[in-house]
């Protein structure tokens, strides 16, 4: 069985977001790049499934759409333990484009399970995984918090409002995963970093695709007014303000 994990390259979550060129472009000067946190958890879970001798997972690879500057992120994925990395050489314009590129690769190189993080922490589209499923005509399960293999079936838990559902799905499958899928992301060890240098990072030419959306401009949120302080000895004043001033009680 082969598992493919989709990787997005995003600014570190502590980044202070800035824009340039009249607020039409993200200003990436001084930005540290990381593997999108959910994708990192997905990769960790995929590796755990491979290491469990009861499963027959023989390959965990990662795929990414981006330029050469994102190779460091893919090397990190290899250092964490992925067997191979594939980079589709194109600018990740929007979710439709990214999903279309990954699907084009998958059609030629099938995998049994595709993992995708629930969203990327930059453009928050939450759609690449489900779009890949549709391009491929695969089943898909979203909001996944747990994945286990049972022979050729996959047993997943899906979060629903106020609870969860246990689901049995057939292969091939796209699982869109969120927090809970793995306890915490794996940190690359020195040995992993050394080995990653020798692992294959294959660069693939992009497929021609029509663009359906474009980014017009960005805005930063307006600064918030001052915080009104209430004395800890008079909390009833807070309740009063929430009722009559903020009108939220």
């Amino acid at each position: 069985m082969k598992i493919l994990v989709c990787i997005s390259n995003v600014p570190d979550t502590t980044t202070k977001v800035k824009f340039k060129e009249d607020s039409t472009l993200f200003d990436d000067s001084g930005v540290q790049w990381i593997i999108n946190p959910w994708d990192e958890l997905a990769l960790t879970r995929a590796l755990e499934l491979k290491e469990d001798a009861g499963n027959s997972v023989d390959e965990v690879s990662v795929i990414h759409v981006g330029g050469a500057q994102t190779d460091a992120t893919l090397r990190k994925a290899l250092a964490i333990g992925a067997d191979k990395a594939f980079r589709i050489d194109a600018c990740a314009a929007d979710a439709y484009y990214v999903a279309g590129q990954i699907a084009a690769y998958l059609k030629e190189n099938p995998f049994d399970i595709v993992f995708s993080g629930i969203e990327s922490s930059d453009y928050n589209g939450s759609s690449v995984g489900a779009m890949i499923a549709e391009f491929m005509d695969y089943s898909g399960v979203s909001s996944v918090t747990s994945v286990n293999l049972d022979g050729d079936d996959v047993i997943l838990y899906r979060a629903i409002p106020g609870g969860k559902q246990k689901i049995k799905a057939e292969l091939p499958l796209v699982a869109v995963v969120q927090k809970g899928i793995a306890k915490e992301p794996r940190i690359p060890a020195m040995r992993g970093i050394m080995m990653a240098r020798k692992k294959p990072l294959e660069v693939i030419a992009a497929t021609e695709m029509e663009m359906l959306t474009r980014s017009v401009k960005f805005e930063l949120p307006k600064a918030k007014g001052a915080c009104k302080m209430i004395d800890a000895g008079h909390v009833e004043q807070l309740v009063e303000l929430l009722k009559n001033e903020a009108k939220v009680l």
């Binding site: 979710a95 439709y96 690449v128 549709e134």
Partner: peptide, 21 residues
């Protein structure tokens, strides 16, 4: 959770550009 699962599929099926949230 349902919109996130369905809307991207419709986008692909109908070749419709999508914006979320």
């Amino acid at each position: 959770e349902s919109g996130k699962a369905i809307a991207p599929r419709i986008s692909v099926k109908m070749k419709a550009g999508m914006a979320s949230a």
